[in-house]
Design a protein around this nucleic acid. Sequence first.
DNA 1: CCGAATCTTTACGTTAACGTAAAGGTAAGC
DNA 2: GCTTACCTTTACGTTAACGTAAAGATTCGG
Lengths: 128, 128
Amino acid sequence: MSKTYSISELAKEFDITTRTIRFYEDKGMITPQRNGQTRIYSPADRTKLKLILRGKRLGFSLDESFAIIDMYNPKGNNAGQLHTLIDGIRERRLALQRQMKELQDMLQDLDDAEQRCREALPDADTAS
Amino acid sequence: MSKTYSISELAKEFDITTRTIRFYEDKGMITPQRNGQTRIYSPADRTKLKLILRGKRLGFSLDESFAIIDMYNPKGNNAGQLHTLIDGIRERRLALQRQMKELQDMLQDLDDAEQRCREALPDADTAS
DNA sequence: CCGAATCTTTACGTTAACGTAAAGGTAAGC
DNA sequence: GCTTACCTTTACGTTAACGTAAAGATTCGG
């Protein structure tokens, strides 16, 4: 028997509402077990939720996050499906790399901005 | 006289609609000159639009993008304001760095997924 | 001078991602 | 047995970020 979680436990852990978790279930992203009516979440459910929230922080829609998470556990097992999946992964990786570059650009812009700030300050304040 | 742009030129260049550009103006993010009623965009306007769209691709709301872009050109010039700005920049940078790490994590996850795919394929297909 | 293109404002509509409230079931503690 | 604390479903409300349509001004080539 591995650990299980209640909906409010997960909500508290990830600082979201139970409504949000049920909403994700409604969208078919999480499918917890039931004890009568009550939802019982497995560690796998918890991980999936975690991944959804990470996707959200990175700016992905739920559908996009869903598509990405789906790549982590191959559905089909024949060669054709696997190759299709690998191609999908390759594309996603390229997109993520583009995003990474834009993030670095923005970081650089912030560094430049800070530099200009420091130059505008009296010399005594120039140190960190 | 530096170059100017019409609204539809910018819309075409960035593959958005004119409605989107006017919407950003409505939100106070861009304030183009006017020739009569017609909007005239400067290179600075164009750059700002570009930055807004970059922020969007990185998952920021317009308000967040606005706040970040605001950091690029200091408003106040006294020491207090500059220090406040530098603090803001520092926090934004930390957030961006966290985001960068999550991006790297996701990339790693994709790499792992692809690896598992390859291992599930017949040996002949294992090479890239 | 006329149609086509491009601009304008105004305003209602739409989608994603939840928020919030209502109404009720169940289980624990006093 | 009653309250308190959970859980449930159902359903209408909300916000951001535009889409879309209407109605009209301007300008440009033929």
